[in-house]
Design a protein around this nucleic acid. Structure first.
Lengths: 194, 194
DNA sequence: CACTGGGCTTGACGGTGTCAAGCCGACGTG
DNA sequence: CACGTCGGCTTGACACCGTCAAGCCCAGTG
């Protein structure tokens, strides 16, 4: 029946969160769904937080891969920058369970899980490289470059967060209209910055 | 001893969250700190979610008041817009407990608490009025205005969220250096948009 | 005086994460 | 082949949680 309980636990956790929300995640229910005793998952993970941390890492890896793919496409820097940003928001909207998990320090203290933290840094590095490329030949100070990175990241992260957890979600419940709004906002931002 | 248990419960909740984090909030511990039985708080609130909702409302009211004050100062629209945005981030950094609570749908379903939702709308309205003022006399469509609102809000909200819950917090642990970074990012944004 | 109702207590229930101990079958070594 | 070890899992217990249900106490009103 059970090929690999470890993987089964992770999958069941994602599914459960999708059904009942972050606060409804229960290890005992996860074990129940995997058809094992309530302590079986703890043979593969130290505690609940470690399970969530594994999901956070998986989420950051998925995000980093998608961003890297967009950054590697051909085209002007400004255009690739914009594509990567749009990809960030799309990831958040398509994978709300993972995205939320990735920014909930009350559930996981990432300093306890270096590999998960590294996966997050990998995603951020995509953005940093694009900014470096964009400012090549200019006399932008490191501080200014850092500010540019934060600005781009804050823009797409804020848009994602507000759509998932803020009132922007209420205003745009329809999926197609929602992504149209995202497109407009991001275009406006690109024009301003460019 | 107890003047008003209702207020005491709310204050104790904020303090407790500040000490042990969102996930450590326990109604029984709150009651213990207030010196009453574990059921006493439930005489003033229907359930735990209602207590958190009251805090969310209080948080949005504080935020709205601060934003309204900045919006009412004299000066050009662009400058007031930038001041309001900075105030948003400052609120998040000064009141992390409230700020986080305000965007945790897994803890409170705001549709169940109209007054809390209204307080959030009040804060958003400050931004909307400024955008309307800014686009007066231009031929900006409603959709474009809406996109501008979302862009400004996403910018400051993203910056706040990343500083509190993302890796930007690790990069800027020092408070004074952190707010300097905020200043740089927001100025960069204002320049681009203006 | 009777009684009504607000504010609080006490006790119980099912649920949770986690510690501790034990069961069992596969597997490497003598 | 026999034996011991060990990974993978189960069983049972513990403290704690949010919440339901009932009852206690006392000020205020008819």
């Amino acid at each position: 029946m059970t090929a690999d309980l470890r993987a089964q636990v992770l999958d069941a956790s994602v599914q459960l969160i999708g059904e009942v929300g972050l606060s409804g995640l229960s290890m005992r229910e996860v074990a129940r769904r995997a058809g094992v005793s309530h302590q079986a998952p703890y043979h593969h993970f130290a505690d609940k937080e470690s399970i969530v941390a594994a999901l956070v890492e998986r989420g950051f890896v998925m995000l980093a891969e998608r961003m890297e793919a967009k950054a590697a496409e051909k085209g002007a820097v400004a255009q690739r920058l914009s594509k990567v940003g749009r990809e960030y928001v799309m990831f958040a909207l398509e994978q709300p369970v993972f995205f939320r998990l990735m920014f909930r320090p009350e559930l996981v203290d990432l300093t306890r899980f270096p590999t998960a933290q590294a996966a997050g840094a990998r995603a951020l590095a995509v953005l940093e490289r694009l900014i470096v490329e964009r400012t090549e030949g200019t006399r932008a100070t490191p501080a200014r470059r850092e500010a540019m990175v934060s600005m781009h990241w804050a823009m797409v992260h804020g848009l994602s967060s507000l759509l998932l957890d803020g009132s922007l979600g209420y205003n745009h419940p329809n999926a197609t209209e929602r992504s149209k709004h995202v497109e407009q906002v991001l275009e406006l931002f690109s024009q301003g910055v460019g």
